[in-house]
């Protein structure tokens, strides 16, 4: 809607000023954080203003027509509205922000932010709402979920740039129970997540140097299983640990590791003719693909080498290195 644009701009402007002011006033927040009166802000909502106008109109009518009944009604409504102010405020007061987790993701996909509250006094978890503005100014909002006394929130902001994603200020608000007032609090927490490069590129994966010609996937005779992990949908039933399942344990999958699996070296310098981002993206694609296949690989970046390895932790290390490569620290 075109008409609302200037207001939207004004609103956003005011919001960012208020945000910065609260940052200066409160300083950096550390978890766990108990919300005290000093940091709670409360204002009527649009509905609250409408309600106030209604009550004023009723009072004016009562005064004008000297009708005590109408006046009494107006004062009752005014009193109820005002007690709503306290009730809304009370829902945030004493609340504890217990934990915040930020999970990384690849550029272009959503990070996962999870915030857990404790000591909440709302009627339901979704009385509370958490919101943030992402780097494009888009407002992301989530209602609380879970038990009423400990709501949790999940926000999925999308990061476009690889590297460290700094958590913007979060806003926690509550309009319950009347919807006439909104009480909110700014949370300025220092937290960041790694944004891995976007996997892209179609350069073929460099062949493993030591056993060229060895066909992939035919190493059945030289594998051994080495770990159990919970069975996931899609796992081959052949890999299921039926014996332990028969003993009454949860269904698990055996993880196999190729003893003589392919060993690659992914070298940054080999990707000539591409710019930095494309190279990083290509390497990321290779790392993911190799881990998916269960291959071992080493990663060679200018100024950093990650030795041959495999598995989830190895992949994590490589992705972290790739995420931060070439960025100012």
């Amino acid at each position: 809607m075109a008409a609302s644009r200037p207001f939207e701009w004004l609103r956003r402007r005011g919001e960012s000023v208020a945000q910065r002011w609260s940052r200066r006033r409160q300083g950096l927040d550390r978890i766990p954080l108990t919300l005290h009166t000093r940091r709670l802000y409360i204002l009527p909502t649009a509905s609250g203003l409408l309600f106030a106008a209604t009550v004023l109109a009723i009072l004016a009518a009562g005064l004008n027509y000297a009708n005590g009944l109408v006046l009494l009604l107006g004062f009752f409504l005014a009193g109820t509205g005002l007690s709503g102010l306290h009730q809304t405020h009370r829902r945030l007061l004493g609340l504890v922000v217990e934990s915040l987790t930020l999970d990384g993701a690849h550029a272009g996909s959503a990070l996962s932010l999870r915030l857990c509250l404790g000591e909440a006094r709302g009627q339901a978890a979704d009385d509370y709402q958490l919101s943030l503005r992402d780097e494009h100014g888009k407002l992301l909002q989530a209602h609380g979920e879970g038990p009423a006394e400990a709501p949790t929130f999940t926000l999925l902001p999308v990061a476009t740039q690889r590297g460290r994603w700094q958590l913007p200020p979060l806003r926690l608000d509550c309009e319950a129970p009347t919807g006439l007032f909104r009480c909110w609090v700014w949370l300025h927490m220092e937290a960041s997540a790694l944004v891995f490069p976007r996997p892209a590129g179609n350069t073929p994966m460099p062949a493993a140097p030591d056993d060229e010609g060895h066909a992939e996937g035919s190493t059945s005779g030289q594998e051994e299983w080495f770990a159990l992990r919970p069975f996931r949908d899609g796992d081959s039933p052949r890999h299921a640990a039926w014996k332990s399942h028969a003993r009454g344990q949860p269904l698990q999958s055996r993880e196999w590791r190729g003893l003589s699996g392919n060993r690659h070296v992914f070298d940054y310098t080999q990707l000539a003719g591409l710019d930095l981002e494309s190279r990083v993206s290509q390497l990321t694609a290779w790392v993911l693909e190799a881990t998916r296949r269960g291959d071992s690989f080493a990663l060679q970046l200018p100024g950093r080498r990650i030795e041959t390895g495999s598995g989830a932790q190895h992949q994590q290390d490589c992705l972290e290195a790739l995420a931060l490569h070439g960025l100012p620290t």
């Binding site: 709302g122 009627q123 339901a124 009385d127 309009e175 009347t178 919807g179 006439l180």
Partner: peptide
């Protein structure tokens, strides 16, 4: 009004 203000 209260019913509209809080889902619970």
């Amino acid at each position: 009004l209260l019913a509209l203000g809080s889902s619970a």
